[in-house]
C-alpha cells in the first residue's frame, strides 16, 4: 500500500459491489411477474384517474429501491376546478 493512498479518494469497488447487490435483488424478484412497485404505481394512478381527470404532466412519481425498504412517492396536483368524474 503506497503512501499516496492516504491522500487519494476511497476505493470504488465496494460501492460497485453494494449497488449491484441491491439492484439485482430487485431485478431477480421481478422476473416473471412484474415489479411490485411498478404495479402499485400503475394501479394507484388508475384509481385516481377513475375519479378525477389527471393531467399527466402534473403527476410526479418517485421510486427508491432500497436494500430492505422501497418507497413509492406519488405526487399529484389536483386543481380546484378539477372535473370530478361520476363514480
Amino acid at each position: 500500500m503506497s503512501i499516496f493512498r492516504f491522500f487519494s479518494k476511497q476505493t470504488s469497488a465496494p460501492t460497485a459491489r453494494e449497488r449491484l447487490q441491491v439492484l439485482l435483488a430487485h431485478e431477480r424478484a421481478s422476473v416473471g411477474h412484474s415489479d411490485l412497485v411498478a404495479v402499485l404505481r400503475e394501479e394507484i394512478l388508475a384509481v385516481i384517474a377513475k375519479h378525477i381527470q389527471v393531467d399527466g404532466d402534473k403527476v410526479s412519481v418517485k421510486m427508491d429501491r432500497g436494500e430492505n425498504v422501497s418507497t413509492l412517492e406519488v405526487d399529484i396536483e389536483i386543481p380546484l376546478n378539477a372535473r370530478v368524474r361520476a363514480a
Binding site: 476505493t11 470504488s12 469497488a13 465496494p14 460497485a16 459491489r17 449491484l20 447487490q21 439485482l24
Partner: peptide, 16 residues
C-alpha cells in the same frame, strides 16, 4: 486494480 480496491474482486462477482 482489484487489490487496490478499484475493481470488483473475483469473490465479489462470484458472490453476486
Amino acid at each position: 486494480r482489484a487489490e487496490r480496491g478499484d475493481m470488483l474482486k473475483v469473490d465479489d462477482v462470484l458472490e453476486i
